[in-house]
Nucleic acid binder design. Structure first.
Lengths: 233, 233
DNA sequence: TAAAAAATATGACTTTTGTCAGGTATGCTT
DNA sequence: AAGCATACCTGACAAAAGTCATATTTTTTA
């Protein structure tokens, strides 16, 4: 399979979305021969916090949550990784075990790139390092912003924020519903609140005409109002 | 002054604490000639969020807060930078304006290293890039952990956490009081709560014998209990 | 398809957090 | 040293968030 044209890294367009786009033909050929394409089912774990990773995972399709178990027994979702994102690279770079757990939010296709290939490029390809560095720097800014929002915004504001985020980053289906269907519990874990509170807030958003729901599915009706709520106007 | 032995980067030991330790003699000589040593008084701003930085600031002495103004009008302190930390490098790497504002928490001595020197080394010195990359990766882990704590811990827990953090990272004086003296308002801005609540919680900690206070100054009496509170036992 | 399990939903209540108003202490300026 | 500004502190109340119990609906599985 790996020898087939489409599964060769040289021809992969997902790469364009991340630091892997800086890899040279030679590096790509090496990776093509050692990489592994994995199919992951919704709900399946990809790696767990504390685990030593022996490679990175490039998301070809689907979406994963990256979460950490807090000492109070609750899971906090720190990041949602969609197509094109590389999971595990932070841990490899820092030479640490994984700090977060990755679980598939829907059926996924991943490319597993072995540590050896990753570190080889990391030590030899300056363009790759530069791209990684820039990527990390941008991630760090996003994380700092999340800290501010977690500390200063209310549950309603943060919930409005993630609905807008999901629409922007994961898109909507033909009927206008958010493509990524999360459980109420997962939404609560992103917001950092209890499931009940999340459900209640969604019910209020619905009553106020900001959103529509149909089972788990959510449609944004009043983007403007949600945005104003998020910004605290 | 710059030609004096002690002010030459080649002889600087602060460098050992960060990525600048990887710089070569030639690079250090160039920086020595263009760098600027700045004395900043307590409360003075170093840079503001949104500002385009034309260099990085290496903390020689003193402590700075890095904060961001939330849309609700409150400042959130995202990081406390002590001796050896380099401020502004994230912005230069990402080629973005500063995301945070830096203000001195006590009298400081900073080395300002111009952007040109920084980016020169960034493009030519692989060891420097590697060190920066590792640094960013570690910072990102810390930020992710703060996100989890902000989302999942109570005000009391977070307050206990920062007291322990201040003791560990900024030390104590001869009498055992925390060396870094913050206003109640600044402590509240780290915790992400209102000043009144911060004061109340400190009063409770005092009543329970966890800490002692003398004006602004705080002494940790029961490290163990604070730690258990932090961990939520 | 029926039963079981899981997820969603709602009500009642508690705890935590935030806010406002006012008081006291502290330090700085003139 | 008096006056002023600032920071610290406290009480009373309001709002937000968390918890527990218990439906109701949806999904899974036997």
């Amino acid at each position: 399979m790996n020898s087939h044209q489409e599964s060769r890294c040289e021809n992969c367009i997902i790469r364009e979305l991340n630091a892997l786009k800086t890899l040279k033909k030679q590096e790509l050929m090496a990776i093509s021969n050692s990489k592994e394409t994995r199919t992951i089912k919704k709900g399946d774990p990809i790696f767990k916090e504390g685990e030593k990773l022996n490679g990175v995972f490039c998301v070809r399709d689907g979406v994963s949550k990256l979460s950490k178990l807090s000492e109070n027994g609750k899971d906090q979702i720190v990041k949602i990784a969609a197509k094109g994102e590389v999971m595990g690279q932070r841990s490899l770079i820092a030479e640490e075990a994984a700090n977060l757990s990755a679980v598939a939010l829907n059926d996924m296709q991943l490319c597993f790139i072995p540590k050896e290939n990753f570190t080889e490029s990391l030590s030899k390809n300056p363009e790759f390092i530069q791209a990684l560095l820039k990527n990390m720097a941008r991630e760090l800014k996003l994380a700092d912003d999340v800290i501010v929002n977690m500390a200063q915004k209310t549950v309603n504001q943060r919930l409005a924020g993630i609905l807008l985020y999901l629409e922007k980053h994961c898109g909507t289906d033909a009927e206008g519903y958010l493509s990524l269907i999360l459980s109420r519990n997962d939404i609560a874990d992103v917001v950092g609140t209890a499931t009940e509170l999340c459900i209640r807030s969604l019910a209020k958003f619905k009553k106020d005409g900001l959103i529509e729901t149909k089972g788990k599915r959510i449609k944004i009706n009043d983007r403007n109002a949600l945005n104003q709520l998020w910004e605290g106007v």
